[in-house]
Design a binder for these strands. Structure first.
Lengths: 232, 232
DNA sequence: TCATGTCTTAATGTTGACATTAGGACATCG
DNA sequence: CGATGTCCTAATGTCAACATTAAGACATGA
């Protein structure tokens, strides 16, 4: 944003558009974890050329949602216990920095946005919103924390695992909805309060614990394999 | 690495090759910070097609070394004080996690590699190695720490700022070589020792301070502008 | 003289054709 | 019968032509 408060106009290319569609399809469960994505099929379905699809897949690879190997195609990330450990360890470190930085630098608008999202979570809970919506709000809250921190590199690092976290959280909520419903509002409200006016040391601890609790919830699922299985 | 200790054979495409060449050229100072990169020129010089160059530039954009805007070309990152704050804040958080994880999980080979690199720094200092070589060793040490941590996502996050750190460190050493020479071996030796056998809390602190001291050294340079100047 | 609209152009965005490759099917040999 | 070598094919990797665009040069008018 510049001095007059206007955000710079941004036009996007077909590659970004393609990436958005494919990401949504993956998160909606349209592609199984571990399944392969064929460029030519995607290009036909999206109505764009393979070049654009290819560039879009490059973006999704940055997000860690897919993996590409030389002349061997691209596959959707399949969830293993190691993946969970890696992603949530990194996320804890990033959330810690984001929370503390937001505490230092956030203005009133940003802080109000956090409160607003917590309130929206509450109403969503009351009207028995579906899982996808709850998780979307959860993600939106953390997006807002990163936005409040105002560190572009930090936000980029978050984006590099954001889609994976989204995928994992969907799985987690699917497995233990009641447990999640009981904690989600309380934990985020505590975070919002500490970011607004709390002890930085305690905030850092709570931010890390928030992530570790999510990780534990997911690792409790015994159906997630420890290693990458060779899918035929 | 798999059970038999063999790393999987990996073939690279022209895009990776092009990215390597362009990155080297930028770090060698062949392209001024803020200057524009024309795809067609790069393609001609490298002897590959624009498609490959374009894909390579996409990789460099992940590394934060260049920025691309829709139909407005790509430019080499120009250093501002804000950039330094952002990169080193994030780096402190990542190094903290990497050091502590390496302390938990590193095997003897990884630890020996750290000691070897510190020793190599000493000899480089003795024979008055040039700035580029000293910085390259510095980077190699931290690469080794990340490798020892063994978290692929963490390493990816490091790679997303690695080239920028490299660029910044070159600038820093250029400005205060003596000061750098005096500290580099001592600080890295301390890090290596704490990673091998130290108190995790203290290790985390030292890892963060190591980064903050680098940041301060760079911010001491008054010639770095606070904001992005509009280059003609 | 300055603001506004039009035109030009040099660059990027996009595309479909062509080249190369990984991995399996099959045949061959020990 | 198992191991090895050869071919085939479906996919990705690469390329060069074409379409679109951003931004400046220029002309026009108040």
């Amino acid at each position: 944003m510049n001095a007059s408060g206007l955000a710079r106009a941004e036009r996007r290319g077909l590659a970004d558009e393609a990436a958005d569609r494919i990401r949504d399809a993956i998160l909606a469960g349209h592609f199984e974890p571990g399944s392969t994505l064929r460029e030519v099929d995607l290009a036909a379905e999206l109505g764009v050329s393979r070049g654009s699809v290819r560039e879009g897949l490059g973006l999704l690879e940055r997000e860690g949602l897919i993996r590409t190997a030389w002349h061997r195609g691209t596959r959707v990330l399949d969830i293993t216990r190691d993946d969970i450990q890696e992603v949530y360890s990194l996320r804890a470190a990033l959330d810690r920095l984001a929370s503390v930085t937001a505490h230092d630098r956030a203005d009133d608008d940003r802080l109000a946005e956090l409160d607003r999202l917590v309130a929206e979570m509450e109403t969503a809970l009351d009207r028995e919103a579906d899982r996808a919506e709850l998780v979307a709000l959860d993600m939106a809250f953390h997006d807002a924390v990163y936005a409040a921190a105002g560190n572009a590199r930090l936000t980029t690092a978050w984006h590099a695992i954001r889609s994976q976290v989204h995928l994992f959280q969907l799985r987690r909520v699917e497995l233990a909805l009641d447990h999640y419903r009981k904690r989600v509002v309380k934990e985020h409200r505590q975070l919002a309060r500490l970011i607004r006016s709390g002890d930085p040391g305690r905030l850092a601890d709570v931010a890390e614990r928030h992530v570790h609790s999510a990780r534990r919830g997911l690792l409790a699922d015994r159906s997630i394999p420890a290693e990458r299985g060779a899918a035929p």
